[in-house]
Design a protein around this nucleic acid. Structure first.
Lengths: 332, 332
DNA sequence: TGCATTTGTGTAAGCGCTTACAGCACCTCT
DNA sequence: AGAGGTGCTGTAAGCGCTTACACAAATGCA
């Protein structure tokens, strides 16, 4: 990768400007000249230096993405949707995981200096830094976060689906509820879910925290919860992974789901359908979230759009067997 | 991000060379001068442009990684280990997923132009392109691939553990074996596992392909396999996800594992421990694989090491309950 | 005190591109 | 025939840094 445009120009007997024009198709180039250039490019195996191009153009043709972790399907799915579209748009994706990191601020600033825009998950970035990034004019898209000025936000609908879910569970006759996986940050998806469910149930639900939103943590917390006095009849979980953990805990304790206990998740990850019993959950379009984020960022960067957009994607209640017996139940 | 070193220099009343020296600590700078510079930097909120730095230094301070997909914990785990170490070494990580992509070659070449080195999984990149990358002098590290000149390779031990696993299963008295998740590429991990198992069992095992190495595909293939005549007594799976699928298929068909059927996986992903029955598998240090790849790449880039290294990390047989009844079995 | 170092700073040449501008043919119209 | 295009190409000025080199001032030492 170290033959430069000068060598190509010399070999083709033209100036570097012509080489550039021939390659990029900007400006007129005689057919004969173009051929000479392409031949030289071919022979020398020339690839324009990304650095040179970027410096001259003032753009990186790259996007960043900041997430806490990659454990579990949620971030992974969103990331894949994002990367796919970014790639289509000719942008590379630079990743940054914040979990367990000290000096996150420095890392993010460095990242911001390498890309044309950033996708940030929820509340992974400290608020003051967000403000600074906005002030510096960094193009920003957030997923799973309440709208803020100076950035696009993108999220799935939570409140209405929370109401639908709670309503469905109440329809099964359940009365003692628990919300497993209490919100860790105000304004993110889980917080909205919790608020929505609580409102729908008129507050008759207790929040049980988990260390993280993982199967393991869900398992531990659920086991403790189910062993306590006054065991809930229905556990609404912050997301599918926690719910999967709850399912395992129930099994370990010999509780029948949905006979003795209803369990629901959120997201509809692939494992939700495969769990036994299959998990009732709220389907969230993870891949599309990522894809839209990539497009939104692109619009912001190219300047096609200057106003900020705050979009909410619709979700869908997926009723399966973990929430209670249904008359004409089918295996999915 | 658009205040330049010139403005800092002007404000501090020095030349840009001095600013650069003060900031990077190369060359002598009087204490008083340094202070002036730092003050100006502070006031202007200056961050050196990554492009400028990279162009001048001729290095990107970034690594690439090429993987087929991110579905499932394997790639994710390795990637996280990689990103963490790369980040420690001051390198960003640029990702590229190849699954479902046309023009992979162009994408990879573009990627190669943005980074100082590449981590490539298995056989995601067509062989001719690998050769070209080597020829171009791109620093390369492969994970899960047979050694090749011109690049580092890194993999987990498969053959010995295959023997151990097969031996253990034979010890349970199983006789009719199947290998679920037949190798898709010669020379990668799954191929080694298959070869190893087959050799250990003296060839008394049939290979059953799955479309991909996923729970879904494992489920489908296993269901078909288990419904056929001459159902195997033990299914050795290419990896844990396929094994998880096989477990589900067995359950659906009312087969008791390990009573009617033994199932084993490979990798020891988190879900393996949580599955019911808990999955016997071979533990592979995924995170460490990623971490080592990052270090290896760094060594190659910085030139600390010039010879190529081909490392094999040890694995460990994890015996749990899915392979057969053990006298003093404990729940893990 | 005088000379050789050392220390601190500035100048300027890159790094590899893109692109505004200018120049030169060669046409096409009146 | 001259004015005004058009089409193609080259020159050169950036883009924002790093760093070799030159040089002046301060220091060390005999």
């Amino acid at each position: 990768m170290d033959v430069t445009i000068y060598e190509v120009a010399k070999r083709a007997g033209v100036s570097i400007a012509t080489v550039s024009r021939a390659l990029r198709g900007t400006g007129p180039v005689a057919a004969r000249t173009r051929e000479k250039v392409l031949k030289a490019v071919e022979e020398l195996n020339f690839t324009p230096s990304r650095l040179g191009v970027s410096l001259a153009q003032g753009r990186h043709a790259a996007n960043g993405v900041v997430f806490p972790d990659l454990a579990g399907p949620y971030y992974t799915e969103v990331l894949l949707g994002y990367e796919e579209v970014a790639s289509e748009l000719g942008r590379s994706v630079v990743i940054l995981s914040t979990k367990g990191r000290t000096k996150v601020n420095d890392l993010i600033k460095d990242l911001a200096g390498r890309v044309d825009g950033l996708l940030i998950f929820g509340h992974t970035v400290p608020e003051p830094l967000v403000a600074e990034l906005v002030r510096l004019g960094v193009r920003l898209v957030f997923i799973s976060r309440e709208p803020l000025p100076g950035a696009d936000t993108l999220r799935s609908e939570n409140t209405a689906s929370a109401r639908a879910l709670a309503g469905h569970l109440a329809g099964h006759g359940h009365e003692r509820f628990a919300f497993l996986g209490a919100p860790l940050a105000a304004g993110d998806d889980v917080d909205e879910r919790w608020q929505g469910v609580r409102a729908a149930l008129g507050g008759a639900i207790e929040a049980v925290p988990t260390r993280e939103y993982t199967v393991e943590c869900g398992f531990e917390a659920a086991r403790k919860l189910l062993q306590g006095r006054s065991r809930p009849e229905a556990i609404i979980c912050s997301d599918d992974e926690v719910a999967l953990g709850a399912l395992l805990a129930a099994e370990e304790l010999g509780l029948d789901v949905p006979g003795d206990l209803a369990v629901t998740g959120w997201d509809d990850i692939m494992a939700a359908r495969h769990a036994r019993p299959a998990l009732t959950t709220v389907r969230q379009p993870m891949r599309e979230l990522g894809a839209r984020a990539a497009r939104a960022l692109d619009e912001l960067i190219t300047g096609v759009r200057d106003a900020h957009s705050h979009l909410i994607l619709t979700t869908e209640l997926q009723i399966r067997s973990s929430c209670g017996h249904h008359p004409q139940e089918e295996r999915t």
